[in-house]
């Protein structure tokens, strides 16, 4: 259970990303946060994780929430991969040896593990950050847009890990693609611009509201800027869920 009590957040004064949100969210289910552009998905994930502090109100977390998946700002680049992983494991109350073994087991890191973090290719560094997220024990894993870096070699790995972890723990996945939500989640929170977020037990109802909202938005944009409405992108059935693996350029 995560209780948001009158939570507001503004990057700039007078322009609230979230405005006095009071809602109770499940922490032990797979929940999608559905919302269009600039509705505060990333902000909400950051607030839940504690990476940013709310401007007003308070968040009560009755579960261990993870940092946003793939969080790599806390790595010390001068330290080796092993030192960084051990530090994270200690801080989050996990057995350091187990965590190192887990990461070495799923990524082919053997010659990198004892090298300084700054020597690693950026792609590998991101993979380590995601593997670390899955390696640590949390009650709820927070994902912002993607569940793993979209590297073709490891594409299936992240999907398998996601399924394995969410079998016993909760997840919150922020996305603006209903297909992704359907593939990875069971319930959803719909964020809307200038309106309160709504929680849905049923994903179909959430998707319906989200799509109606998106269509209304597009119509408003088309009228406002006198531009033709952009076609909604179509996905082919075979790659359902792949959108969650690569960051989509906004």
């Amino acid at each position: 259970m995560i209780r948001l009590d009158n939570v507001s957040f503004a990057y700039q004064r007078g322009r609230n990303e979230l405005d006095r949100v009071s809602i109770e969210l499940p922490s032990h289910r797979r929940m999608a946060i559905l919302g269009g552009q600039e509705t505060g998905k990333t902000t909400l994930i950051g607030l839940l994780a504690g990476v940013i502090d709310p401007t007003g109100g308070r968040i009560e977390r009755l579960a261990h929430l993870s940092f946003p998946a793939g969080y790599n700002r806390a790595f010390r680049l001068a330290n080796t991969v092993r030192q960084n992983v051990i530090f994270a494991a200690r801080v989050y109350d996990a057995d350091p040896g187990e965590v190192v073994d887990f990461i070495c087991g799923i990524l082919d890191l053997n010659d990198w593990i004892d090298r300084p973090m700054r020597d690693l290719p950026v792609q590998t560094r991101r993979s380590v950050a995601y593997a670390l997220t899955y390696a640590l024990p949390f009650d709820t894993y927070l994902f912002d847009n993607i569940i793993g870096p979209g590297d073709p070699a490891t594409r299936d790995l992240w999907r398998v890990l996601y399924e394995a972890r969410t079998a016993t723990a909760g997840a919150v996945l922020a996305t603006r693609q209903p297909r992704v939500a359907e593939t990875y989640c069971d319930c959803a929170l719909v964020l809307r611009r200038d309106a309160h977020p709504v929680f849905f037990e049923n994903l179909r109802e959430a998707t319906a509201l989200f799509e109606a909202e998106a269509a209304a938005d597009q119509r408003a944009n088309a009228v406002g800027h006198d531009q033709p409405a952009v076609d909604t992108p179509t996905f082919d059935e075979g790659s359902v869920g792949n959108q969650a693996l690569a960051k989509v350029a906004d």
Partner: peptide, 25 residues
Amino acid sequence: YPSGRMYAAGPRRLALRAQFNVLSA
């Protein structure tokens, strides 16, 4: 929680332990 861990009044009673972990690390 499905993970089998139980919290009375939230994870606050684990706060001291978390604090110790952070400080020692």
